[in-house]
Design a protein around this nucleic acid. Structure first.
Lengths: 342, 342
DNA sequence: TCAACTTTGAGCAACGTACGTCAAAAATAG
DNA sequence: CTATTTTTGACGTACGTTGCTCAAAGTTGA
């Protein structure tokens, strides 16, 4: 039951500690027959490196950097504060975390920030990716310099990033449709969709998933052409307001981007009894309040705190060459009603 | 930025390592003025014990036991396999996990199992509690013997248990009502509630929450008297079938216990078009399949894997006297549609 | 002031690993 | 069979902490 150590491995392999160490750390000067004997002993004993002891000995510090968009986006600011909050806890475990912000939707800015990463100062980086081929190139160069790169929240699948921590936005869109479709099952009518901008990959994916399910399962509901609110409350309020006015048969609203304050304003004008069902994204102070007041029906959320912890665990695992428990790291699409708010 | 060690503390306090160690581990033989100096130095430097190093040195192994009900309950068996799966990972971190099963709903059996816990063999225990004053007494005695006790899944608030890991079942019931109420908003009618047995605390709490919200928010829906299915698929199928036959106005079903296979059988008989909306508890292979086939609309779930990890983290923190990050440990009420199944 | 006592310091081994150096042993080439 | 190279072992130091011993200070009471 007690864990075997390198001493045990050395004894059963009939070699010295040094040799085991050479094998373990891939240092040269071991005959292949000896190597096989040591490997066999490890397998036999089920030896596993004690990472705590190894780190203590190596005085290893994991230095990670999070690169996220700057600007007023509530979700990103929440993410940032989660990262900053976690860094204190992380410091206790030899993990040093930096947060850097870059202009949003600006591939070039992200690229130059990535280029500036010095492998002597940073072991790994978690990036909220901008969908841009130059960014993928910069990932490749960072990886070549020996920096582990993972994407966070927003993925860039066609790149050398080693992992993606975040939700599947197609799934998120499908989930929103599953909810809204059921909320409006006996009230055929029109569904308004409010997005930020379709050039943002996340939003496009959410709409895709939403329309898949709406068309497939709830074809009695008609999806109105997407309103592009540019994540700006004023624009959202104006555009949505005008749609609501022109189409009294709007029975549901799906807000898949930011600018939820605009939704609140536009919908507050509607008589409560005939108010459409509303599903939005991200749990923020505003959406939380709207859920509590009954204005919104549900919020689709991704748990930023969990994403941050997961990103750090994964970066560590990548550096240690350890296995990743995908089921643990899976960030689910969360649904919140007023009743199960955390 | 780099963490201070006892060496640093000793130097700034102007004492030796031994003295710092004596202070740190509460050993006698330190003048109170010296103690104050050392404490001051620690505060000044922000010293925090390196738990990994301390454990390495102490050769400390955390020995935890999980006591859960035996029997066919799908959730409990899933919980057990999560615990067993996690114990391999835990072993790598000096945590040894045992699972013990006891007859369900049997306070006396649980008590005798608790009495058998030897503080020389077990540091902490996580118990799926049975609501029984004798169990609370047994908790108190275990605590007095120096064993940390927390409750898991099912709480016993009026006891000395140090923490509860699990969901708030009143919240779970409210959430189910929030969903079902919205699913049936435009289809006034009757809601059938299927429970296991009302003597189980969890079920009673869920029904309480469900009725709170139904009455408060969805008063146009009539909640039919609870069907007690004793978590038995046959009984559930028969009882629910008879209710559906006698009351064609059943527009929604809330299943708050086990026996979901009985629900499936009873509802499969109903014409798909007029099938009621169905919300159930716990994501199991059966409920998952029913969600995918469209028979069930939503499942309320508690994440067993997360509960197990949380329980272990909390037991460790209690033993180390470390702080508990309640926001991290909060196990939320999860909602799954077919669209966001993990 | 001296004995008795308390407090403090210095040192060591240990935990499991990492990573050096140096010398001895073994294998290989010529 | 030597000379050379490769492989191996022995050992030391380090990481931050624990927990022990022993001796040297310091403090107190009579």
């Amino acid at each position: 039951m007690i864990r075997p150590t390198i001493h045990d491995v050395a004894r059963t392999a009939g070699v010295s500690l040094s040799t085991v160490d050479r094998v373990l750390n891939g240092r040269p000067g071991v005959r292949s027959s000896t190597l096989a004997r040591v490997a066999e002993a490890m397998r036999e004993l089920g030896y596993e490196r004690d990472i705590a002891a190894a780190n203590l000995s190596k005085q290893r510090i994991y230095r990670f950097s999070f690169i996220i968009p700057e600007g007023p986006n509530t979700f990103m600011r929440g993410l940032q504060s989660e990262i900053e909050g976690f860094s204190a806890e992380a410091a206790r475990n030899r993990v040093e975390i930096r947060v850097e912000t870059v202009p949003p939707f600006d591939g070039a800015a992200l690229v130059s920030r990535l280029e500036a990463l010095n492998p002597a100062e940073v072991d790994g980086v978690a990036v909220v990716a901008t969908d841009d081929a130059r960014v993928a190139d910069a990932f490749a160069r960072a990886v070549r310099r020996g920096i582990q790169v993972i994407t966070l929240v927003s993925d860039l699948p066609a790149s050398d990033r080693r992992y993606f921590v975040g939700v599947d936005n197609v799934v998120a869109g499908r989930t929103a449709a599953g909810l809204l479709g059921r909320f409006c099952r006996d009230r055929p009518g029109r569904i308004a969709v409010v997005a930020g901008s379709m050039v943002v990959r996340d939003h496009a994916e959410r709409r895709l998933g939403f329309e898949q399910v709406m068309r497939g399962e709830f074809s009695r509901l008609e999806v109105h052409p997407t309103i592009e609110g540019r994540d700006d409350a004023d624009i959202v309020a104006r555009e949505l307001g005008s749609v609501l006015e022109r189409h009294p048969d709007v029975v549901g609203i799906y807000s898949l981007g930011a600018g939820n304050r605009g939704i609140i304003r536009a919908v507050s004008a509607v008589t409560p009894d005939i108010r459409p069902a509303i599903v939005v994204h991200e749990l923020t102070p505003h959406t939380r309040e709207a859920l509590l007041s009954g204005l919104f029906d549900a919020a689709i959320n991704q748990n930023a705190a969990r994403e941050v912890r997961s990103a750090v665990r994964i970066l560590r695992a990548l550096i240690d060459g350890a296995a990743i428990d995908r089921s643990q790291e899976n960030i689910g699409v969360e649904i919140f009603l007023r009743d199960n708010l955390p």
